[in-house]
Design a protein around this nucleic acid. Sequence first.
DNA 1: CAGACTTTGTGCAACGCTTCACAAACCCCT
DNA 2: AGGGGTTTGTGAAGCGTTGCACAAAGTCTG
Lengths: 232, 232
Amino acid sequence: MPMTPSPSPHRDIPAATVSRLPTYLRALHSAAAQGVTTVSSGQLATAAGVLPTQLRKDLSHLGSHGVRGVGYDVARLIVEITSALGLGRDWPVAIVGMGNLGRALTAYSGFGTEGFHVVAVLDRDPALVGERVAGLTVRHIDELPTLVAELGIAIGVLATPADGAQAAADALVAAGIEAILTFAPAALALPPGVSLRRVDLATELHVLAFLRHGGAGIGASVSDLAKVGVAG
Amino acid sequence: MPMTPSPSPHRDIPAATVSRLPTYLRALHSAAAQGVTTVSSGQLATAAGVLPTQLRKDLSHLGSHGVRGVGYDVARLIVEITSALGLGRDWPVAIVGMGNLGRALTAYSGFGTEGFHVVAVLDRDPALVGERVAGLTVRHIDELPTLVAELGIAIGVLATPADGAQAAADALVAAGIEAILTFAPAALALPPGVSLRRVDLATELHVLAFLRHGGAGIGASVSDLAKVGVAG
DNA sequence: CAGACTTTGTGCAACGCTTCACAAACCCCT
DNA sequence: AGGGGTTTGTGAAGCGTTGCACAAAGTCTG
């Protein structure tokens, strides 16, 4: 079963590195807000909860150059990571599924940073269409193609129940969206080229249960499953 | 920096396997609900979005024995995975932080399966204490030790803003909770032995942005960063 | 200006996970 | 009972990630 091919031929950044860059970026913004202009890999690493060598290797993939004996320039590193992640522009987001989770995500402030903006909220239930959620009017899922065209929506968030997730994903894809973040506990069939990230709340709880209980006589010295925070 | 030691000496199950078991379990429950009594690794694998060999290797770590030429007994496999994950009991959950996200998680049905029950919701803001959320009364964070003792709370969910996350985590740990699921975008310092799982919504969006944009001339043929769903 | 100190950047080894290839085991049909 | 077909279980290879060790490069002090 083939994996997603590269959408465009680029320099290679390991997946594990990419998933850590947002954390670094957040720590850098925090440092900048406090007036810090230079950070060492050790400082930034503890703020992000990783090892200094890991941080330096990660940054080396960006072609980033700190100054030996000094550290990294905060402002410059912010620019470089922002650029590497593609955050130098607006990313209009549509959220499909206006249940409890969808409403909360719409209002969640964490979705309103770094150029991400929820610009449309949709549901398939006509009874919900027209309601206001966090300043937006709920639209019907059939309006999605129009909204994508008008608002330049690039990312779709699925907050539907599992049984409606595939239909909603199909609607997103049909409307031209190629990046989906789903909270629905279901396997989605998508055409090649569509990026998918999954957040599974139930799975997280199950893993925690495993780490506590270890199962009936079964357990693990699990390596990075349970990450203990690093002292700051 | 040492990693989390094994809480108790058990058989070794790879971390990656543990994180997939809940998905298998869900697919098995779905199959059982449809009256299916036997599944092959291929059927179960496609339902879960993984490769058949991956599924078989995962199950082999449970000491599970399917029947060659036939497949796996659905009911038995449910029992084995449930047991391995430690889901054969109640897992009372407390949610700290009754903002938008906390309220939604409290009402989210996905948190109400497999023995997980939200039995307490808390906040540090006195103005919120006493309000009703999804049938529960919001308690003050100071009441946590009492509630843990009375209700047997085993898992804490952090839905606070980043700046209050460490204090809330400290409160959970002080109350005796050793398993934490956090949605706060912050690195947490925790004592050894406390299990932590992190869900970072902003990071997921950032990764999707990277997969679309690829950064300013930087991108990746990322392996498993973007998983395309498998046809079911 | 030289030497000590600090911090980055990176080759390399160790580790864990994924995937392949194939033998072992089981059912069913004749 | 025997043979063909199917499916599991697993050794082993391939791959990516992590962590270490150390050289390179810069600052600072006397």
